[in-house]
Design a protein around this nucleic acid. Structure first.
Length: 592
DNA sequence: ACTTAGTGTCATGGT
DNA sequence: ACACCATGACACTAA
């Protein structure tokens, strides 16, 4: 997958590709922190800078590699390679890029190849000597200067013009291995690696395949068949082809330091030391390029990186892990939970829904097997068909223990399927089983519709669908039962939801009413207080007025004998407090 | 062992 | 009459 990164050294395009691929990795379950968005942004920024710097130097090389890509696409037409504009053909791209790189490096180094080999031979012959370090350093320096070399002619891609690989003698191989094992050389190479890491871009993956510290032949051993004994490429050249480590990967100063930084590094890299950095090229084709970020890539994960495999697996997991939402409101997302659209014939066994209920709850019946397969193997068709065909419904199944028709437990739930890693959510699992049971029923009767279709199609479409398939009474009854149950389930869920909403609403209303009551009580209390005050003031005023009244003789009226009353027109009358009414002088009589 | 929440299902009534 | 919906009631499971 990430192979593409190695081949193309362009800027934004690659970053976008990386982003896409990262997202894909996330979808594939890669650890989130590894692909943290901010982290990736930082990485992308760093990579952009590096790419800008390198682009100046790598421009010509990039042009050549694009030409190589074009050729690869041509090869695809022959079926040899898969086009790699998208991250869908990692392996072939990796191989090709490696080959190209090898060719390039080989050619670049062609002029000095003999001298290099001579150095190695000299090294092997004189090893171990202090001269080794000088040789290795000079070799590395020379190798590292390869990006500045003139672009490789396109013709060099063909094996013809290439110098024949120079087979390395076992002694030379051993010498080379030991040479690379020298701490001095390692340090030297690490310096080169560090330099390379500053100018390269994309991290590469490494895999457990490369476990041996013997990295002498790692490039060719996996790049080309039968090339394990070839020695066309030196490790430092692969540093150039190495598209760079994850930004978090600290360029190692030496192996020990690298190991000391183990917690920050890819565990495989740490384990293998800088050797594995070189080996990343091998890994590129081994692991389809996981950008070197996925430490614990399992074989499954690796397979999943294959587009087709990833799709298949994703589909399986999607179906297996996605619980069939039973929510009436959000339900029917389980449309695709049906792994099959039955295309069975009109075979029917003439057992009713209730029979199916009984069949459902037979231990080891089709449902339990179905549920298991549905959640794990996802290959229910044959099995279920076999069950349905092999079990004459209504005979052995009905003869078994009959539980109450209503609300029998699902065998899948009783048979320990909760241990399934795909059914962590019990409720979801239950829903899953529920729909699986419907599916199983429908399948057992060879009903050529999915439960989702049966339940959710509009009446007209449903009737039309039914009319297009000739079904017997049992099938029709089952279909209608499924539809009824499904709709009622949704209705019940909606009803419960409404009930809960009503409860919540009533609770809120109750709270508001309590607040209103409290407010009214306070208002009443305030009004009572005000009323008392007003009465008091009125009484005071009343007495004051009374005290000012005088009769003809100048005597004051007693409030106990008289009272003041106001008429509707505003006139004030002094009314004697007498038991019986009598006329006053104005014939206006009032009584108390 | 008991309680409780959640869910599926049936029966029933309304639209 | 039929389909659909709403809801109470019941059974069951899992927490």
């Amino acid at each position: 997958m990430m192979m593409e990164m190695e081949v193309v050294h362009s800027g934004q395009q690659d970053v976008d590709l990386i982003d896409i691929l990262w997202n894909q990795d996330i979808d594939l379950g890669a650890r989130r922190e590894v692909f943290d968005y901010n982290h990736r942004q930082k990485e992308n920024e760093l990579q952009r800078q590096r790419e800008l710097e390198e682009e100046k130097r790598m421009d010509l090389l990039r042009e050549r590699e694009k030409a190589v890509l074009a050729q690869l696409q041509l090869d695809d037409e022959t079926g040899e390679y898969i086009p790699c504009p998208a991250p869908s053909a990692p392996l072939q791209s990796a191989v090709t890029s490696l080959e190209v790189t090898q060719n390039v490096n080989f050619t670049e180094e062609n002029g000095d190849a003999m001298s290099f080999d001579e150095c190695l031979q000299l090294l092997a012959e004189t090893f171990p000597v202090e001269e080794t370090e000088n040789i290795s350093v000079s070799s590395s320096n020379k190798i590292m200067s390869s990006p500045d070399l003139p672009p490789l002619p396109a013709a060099s891609l063909s094996p013809g013009p290439l110098p024949p690989p120079q087979r390395m003698s076992p002694d030379l191989e051993q010498a080379w291995m030991e040479l690379l094992s020298l701490p001095e050389l390692q340090q030297c190479l690490n310096m080169q690696i560090e330099e390379a890491l500053d100018t390269t871009t994309y991290p590469l993956s490494n895999t457990p395949e490369v476990q041996s510290p013997n990295f002498t032949f790692y490039p060719m051993a996996n790049v080309s068949d039968g090339a394990t004994d070839s020695f066309n490429v030196c490790p430092a050249e692969f540093v150039n082809t190495f598209d760079g480590p994850p930004p978090h990967m600290v360029p190692p100063d030496n192996v020990s330091q690298m190991e000391a930084k183990a917690p920050q590094l890819d565990t495989n890299i740490v384990a293998e030391g800088f050797c594995d950095i070189f080996c990343s090229n091998t890994i590129l084709e081994e692991s389809s390029g996981q950008q070197g970020l996925e430490e614990n890539e399992t074989p499954m994960d690796l397979y999943s990186l294959s587009p087709g495999e990833a799709f298949d697996r994703g589909k399986v997991n999607l179906t297996a892990e996605m619980p069939d939402s039973d929510s009436g409101i959000s339900s029917n997302t389980s449309t695709n939970s049906s792994p099959h659209k039955s295309v069975y014939g009109d075979g029917s066994f003439g057992y009713s829904d209730s029979d199916m209920e009984e069949m459902d709850h037979n231990p080891g019946s089709a449902e339990s097997d179905y549920s298991e397969m549905f959640s794990l193997n996802f290959q229910p068709d044959d099995h279920l068909t076999a069950v349905a065909l092999s079990a004459p419904m209504g005979q052995p199944l009905q003869s078994q223990e009959k539980k109450p028709k209503h609300h029998q437990t699902d065998p899948a739930e009783d048979s320990g399927h909760s241990n399934s890693p795909f059914t962590k959510d019990k409720q979801k699992k239950r829903s899953d089983v529920r729909l699986s049971r419907d599916e199983q029923r429908a399948k057992a009767l060879n009903i050529p519709f999915t439960v989702d279709m049966i339940i959710n199609l509009p009446v007209d479409d449903f009737n039309e669908m039914m009319s297009k398939h000739q079904m017997n009474e049992a099938q029709l009854a089952l279909v209608r039962d499924i539809r009824r149950r499904g709709k009622n389930k949704v209705a019940a869920q909606n009803c419960r939801k409404r009930k809960m909403e009503n409860i919540v609403g009533l609770e809120g209303e109750l709270d508001s009413l309590k607040e209103e009551k409290e407010r009214l009580l306070n208002e009443k209390s305030q009004n009572t207080t005000n009323l008392k005050e007003m009465k008091r003031q009125l009484n005071t005023l009343y007495l004051e007025v009374f005290s000012m009244l005088r009769d003809e003789k100048g005597n004051s009226y007693s409030p106990s004998n008289y009272s003041l009353q106001q008429s509707s027109d505003g006139s004030i009358f002094l009314v004697p407090r007498v038991k019986k009414t009598f006329k006053n002088e104005d014939n206006r009589v009032s009584s108390l």
